[in-house]
C-alpha cells in the first residue's frame, strides 16, 4: 500500500480535470453509447428509411394474411409482427454491439476505456430499448392507419408494462449472444441469427404454441418471448388487466433477474478468454 501511494500519479494528471468519477461518470459514459448510436443512425439515414419501409410492409403483409379470418386475427398477427420487431431490435442491437465495434476497429479503444463493462452493456441496452420503441411505434402507426384498427377494448398500459418487463430478459439474452462475435470474429455475428431464429420458431410469434410439434413445445417455456406475446395479446385483444397478467409478469421478471446477471457473467468470462487469446485485435 505504501508503495502504491508513493507511485500515485500526479493529482489531476490522470484523466482530464473535468472528468466525472463514480456513478455519475459511469452514467455519462453509458449515455455516450446512446449518443454515439444515434449519431451513427443519423449518418446511415438512407439505410434506416429503407429498413423501416421494409418493416412496415412486412408487418402489413403478415397482418393481411388474417383479413379473411376477421379483425381479431389481423390484430393477433399484427401484435406478433410488432412484438417480434421490437424484441428482435433489442436482441440484435445488444448482440451485435461487439460486432459493430469490430467492423469499425474501435473495439480496443472502447474496451480500454476506464468504464465498467456493465456500463458498456447497459448503455448499449438502453439504446436498444429506445431504438426498438421508436421503430415499433412507427410500424404501429403505419399499420393502425392501414387497417383502421379498433383498439377500444385494448389495455395498452398493461401491454406496455409487459413490453418493458420483457425487454430486460431480452437484454440478458442479447448479452449472452454478444459473446459470440467476441469469441469468433468471423462467424459470431452469423451465429446470433441462429439464436434469433430458434426464438422465432418456438415463441408463438404468429401462431399458438399448440401448433408446434409436441417434442418442441417444452422449448417454448424457456423463451421469454412466449410469455410476452401471450400477455400482450391478452391485453390488446381482450383488455386483460395487470392483475390478470401478474403470473406471467412475474415469470418475465424472474427471467430478467436470471438472464441479466447470467448474461453479464458469460460476457465477463468470454472477455477474459478473448484477452488471453488476443481476440480483440482488429479484424475485418
Amino acid at each position: 500500500m505504501k508503495r502504491d501511494a508513493a507511485l500515485s500519479p500526479p493529482p489531476g494528471g490522470a484523466l482530464a480535470p473535468a472528468a466525472r468519477r463514480g456513478w455519475l461518470g459511469e452514467l455519462c459514459s453509458g449515455w455516450g453509447f446512446v449518443e454515439r448510436n444515434f449519431r451513427l443512425i443519423r449518418r446511415y439515414a438512407a439505410w434506416e428509411v429503407a429498413e423501416q419501409f421494409y418493416n412496415v410492409v412486412n408487418a402489413l403483409t403478415i397482418a393481411l394474411i388474417g383479413v379473411a379470418q376477421g379483425p381479431e386475427v389481423v390484430l393477433y398477427l399484427t401484435v406478433g409482427a410488432l412484438l417480434w420487431g421490437f424484441l428482435s431490435v433489442i436482441f440484435m442491437e445488444v448482440a451485435t454491439s461487439v460486432q459493430w465495434e469490430r467492423w469499425e476497429g474501435t473495439i480496443e479503444s472502447t474496451f480500454m476505456a476506464p468504464i465498467h463493462r456493465l456500463t458498456f452493456l447497459l448503455g448499449t441496452s438502453a439504446w436498444a430499448v429506445l431504438y426498438g420503441l421508436v421503430r415499433t411505434s412507427v410500424v404501429l402507426g403505419a399499420v393502425a392507419l392501414f387497417f383502421r384498427m379498433d383498439l377500444s377494448r385494448a389495455n395498452l398500459g398493461a401491454a406496455l408494462l409487459v413490453l418493458v418487463v420483457s425487454s430486460f430478459s431480452f437484454i440478458g439474452l442479447g448479452l449472452i449472444a454478444a459473446v459470440l462475435p467476441l469469441l469468433s470474429p468471423e462467424k459470431g455475428a452469423q451465429a446470433t441469427h441462429i439464436i434469433q431464429g430458434v426464438l422465432l420458431l418456438i415463441s408463438g410469434v404468429y401462431y399458438e404454441i399448440d401448433a408446434l410439434p409436441a417434442w418442441l413445445q417444452p422449448l417454448s417455456w424457456i423463451s421469454p418471448a412466449t410469455y410476452t406475446l401471450r400477455d400482450v395479446r391478452r391485453a390488446v385483444l381482450h383488455g386483460a388487466t395487470v392483475g390478470q397478467l401478474a403470473p406471467d409478469l412475474l415469470r418475465l421478471g424472474l427471467f430478467a433477474l436470471v438472464m441479466i446477471p447470467l448474461g453479464y457473467a458469460v460476457f465477463a468470462t468470454a472477455e477474459r478468454y478473448a484477452l488471453r487469446k488476443g481476440l480483440l485485435k482488429r479484424n475485418g
Binding site: 484523466l15 482530464a16 473535468a18 472528468a19 466525472r20 468519477r21 455519475l24 461518470g25 459511469e26 455519462c28 459514459s29 449515455w31 455516450g32 449518443e35 454515439r36 449519431r39 451513427l40 449518418r43 446511415y44 469499425e104 476497429g105 474501435t106 480496443e108 479503444s109 472502447t110 476505456a113 476506464p114 468504464i115 482488429r282
Partner: peptide, 21 residues
C-alpha cells in the same frame, strides 16, 4: 480506428464521454 461515418468531433465526443468528460 474510428467510426468512419462519424465526424472527428463526434468520435472525440464519444471517446471523451467514455472517460466521463
Amino acid at each position: 480506428a474510428f467510426f468512419k461515418k462519424l465526424s472527428s468531433w463526434e468520435n472525440l465526443c464519444y471517446a471523451a464521454r467514455l472517460y466521463g468528460l
